[in-house]
Each structure stands twice: as C-alpha cells, then as structure tokens.
Nucleic acid binder design. Structure first.
Lengths: 193, 193
DNA sequence: ATGTTATTCAACACTGTGTTGTTTAAAATG
DNA sequence: CATTTTAAACAACACAGTGTTGAATAACAT
C-alpha cells in the first residue's frame, strides 16, 4: 500500500515472460496477425493471465515501446544534444552514443521496425528529435528568410529516416561513421549553434 | 475474353461503392478495427460480395493505395523532376504540381495518413523519391567525400516527412510556397544538378 | 425475350476475444 | 514453521468477426 512495497515475484516473472514472448512473436509476425494466444503460448502463460496485466495487445505494444524508448532517451547522451552551445566534438559524441545504444539493443529496434506497425514507434522518436532541433536551430545565415517549422520538420524527418535506414539495413556503418556523417548533414542546415 | 470487353456495370458499381465506403470508414477508424461488415454496410453491399472482389481487407487497402499513387505519379509533373538538367524554375514548377495534386485529392491523402497504417503508403512514396534523388544527386562540391547512400536516404526521408507534415497539418502553406522552400532545402544538399 | 452472371441471402465451421468462478500453488508475513 | 494472501491456471461462457458454400434472385448484355 505504501512506498517500499515490493511487487510479488510472480508478477515480475510473468510480466517479463510476456514481454519477451511478445517481442519474439512481434519480430516474426505482423502485429495485426498476432493473437493473444500466440503470446501466451510463447510465454508459457495462461491466455487469461495476459489480461491480468494488459488490456489488450495494443496496450502491450504501447507499454513495451514506452519502456524501451524512455530508457534510450535517458541512457544515451542525447540529453547533452539538447543543451546549449555544444562543441562539434561533443555533438558528434552524443550522436555516437545514440547509435551505440541502438547497436546494443539491436534486436528490439529491428523487430520494432521489421513489423508494419512502425508508425507508433517512429512517432515517438520523431517527437523527441523535433523538440531537440527546435531549440538548436539557428535562423540566421543560410536559414534567413526561410520557414522555421519547415526546416525543423525537414531535418527531424531526415534524422529519423536515417536511423530507420541504418537499423533496417543491419547497421552497415559504424556508429562513429554514422555520427560524423549525420552531424555534417544536419550542420548544413544550421542546426548546431 | 478479348480486348473491347466491357465489364459488367454491376461490377463497376459495386467496386466503386466498396472503394468509396472503404475510404470513408478508413478516415474514421483505425485500419485494424475496421471489419468487412463496416465496409459492406457503408457500401450497401452484401458482406459476401466484398469477398467476390477482394481477398481480404489488406488486399483492399493495397489496391486502393496502388490505384491512387499510380495516378499521382503519372499525372503530376513529378516525371519531369526525374529528367536531367532541370532548370530551377522548372524544378519548382514540378514540385508545385505535386503539392497541387495532393491539394486536389486531399481527402484521400489525409485519410491515408490519419490512420495508423501509414507505413505502406509512406513506403510507396518514398521508394519513388529515392530513385528520383539517386539520379539527381551531385557528389561534387559540398558532397565530396560524403556517403552517397546516406545523403539519398537523408533527403528522401526529409522530403516524404515534409509532405506528410503538410497534409496532416491541413496544408498551412500554399503549394507554391512549399515548392520554393522544399527546393531550397533540397538544393542545399546538392541534389539538383 | 432469353441466356448469363453478379449479387443476395442464410447457414456453416472456425478462430479469436474478453470475462468469470473455481481451484491450485507460490509468495509474503509474523 | 504455519498461516494468510494472492497470482496464476483452468475451464467454460457469450460474443464478434472471418471466409466459404449452395440456392434463389435480379440486373445485365445480347
């Protein structure tokens, strides 16, 4: 009832099993075609048990994405990317940490993208990037007279697309190479101040 | 059996009714939640009749997208954009025709994007753009030493994203304004030769 | 006017959903 | 350790949607 309330081990175990099973099935089947039974069987859990923890498979997908993306955003130095006055080297390091994080959790990311139900996932990442870019864009120089919102949308979409491409193509370049290239491309649009 | 074979009017009528109904329902409901019954009732057609023309709702969605996108690609001057040695004004005109086409078929595009099942639709457009850009990219100057594939992916994603943004935000700018802005942003990356 | 065939209709077996009441067994607690 | 608590299993349920079938009907082409 109060704070230090440890959750029942059984709950932790089954929730974990369900999540693992879900990711497994998700990487094999299109989301629409996945049934609760698919997941429960893979998790060695009764079908009804899933309804004890999640409303439906949509709820399951949502929470799964949220957990992983929250972890990504906080764990990698993407936070640094949001700060003001970042040096070139620092910016590249931050980008690199992002690519490395994805590399470490490749299975999760690739199954999230291999399935059709990408949009949700993509939207979440893009939202973060958009606000990040919004704070860093410099409307002087090359961007003078241009539409700010358009440049933001342009760049954020380009960035997310590059991430997606990198993952779907099984990470053909190193994180470092990606970081440098992406930095150059973004810097062209006067994003880094 | 031969060429001048006119298809039965009944077929044309019901196919048309099914398509209209599908687009209507699609703009209101998430694709996953749509049932064949939803569509058949809206189309004033027996449920079984839909199975006479389409395998399932996925088939229906696919064919619907294909028909409309084929029309878009051929009808607008996007073809001009693929040719070599385009003048600035010509390029902007081609872009403009694209935005105008979308404007004319706004209902279709917005319902395609308002629903979750965007990916399919997005992928199709992006594929076209990618090959288009691939032919126009200039690896000299600012792009020297950069990775070609990355620039292509970067720009194509940015482009598609801008289209999507424009549609989802109910076309806040004129087609002309969009064409000019987008041209500048793409030109920065040395795409126009 | 007649033959053709697209559509309707009712019925079918089937798969999956979400819920419920009871039983079982594992965990927390003193 | 014994006792209480409660998560999970199980079986059964009504329900919604799928995709198919065969016979009746009505619209169409000729």
């Amino acid at each position: 009832m109060t704070i230090g309330n440890k959750t029942d081990r059984r709950i932790l175990r089954t929730k974990d099993a369900i999540n693992r099973a879900f990711l497994e099935v998700f990487s094999e089947k299109e989301f629409d075609r996945i049934t609760i039974n698919d997941i429960s069987e893979r998790a060695n859990v009764n079908r009804g048990t899933i309804y004890l923890h999640y409303m439906d498979k949509y709820d399951l997908l949502n929470r799964c994405i949220n957990v992983h993306l929250d972890e990504m955003i906080s764990s990698c130095t993407l936070t640094k990317f949001t700060q003001e006055n970042v040096e070139k080297n620092e910016a590249i390091e931050a980008l690199k940490s992002l690519f490395i994080y994805i590399q470490k959790n490749f299975l999760f990311f690739s199954s999230m993208l291999s399935s059709q139900k990408t949009s949700l996932f993509r939207e979440r990442i893009q939202k973060t990037l958009t606000s990040s870019i919004q704070e860093k864009i410099n409307m002087q120089g090359i961007n003078q007279g241009m539409d700010k919102e358009l440049i933001i949308q342009f760049t954020a979409n380009a960035f997310v697309g590059i991430l997606e491409w990198w993952i779907l193509n099984r990470m053909p370049y190193t994180a470092e190479h990606m970081a440098e290239q992406v930095w150059t491309l973004i810097e062209r649009n006067n994003i880094n101040s």
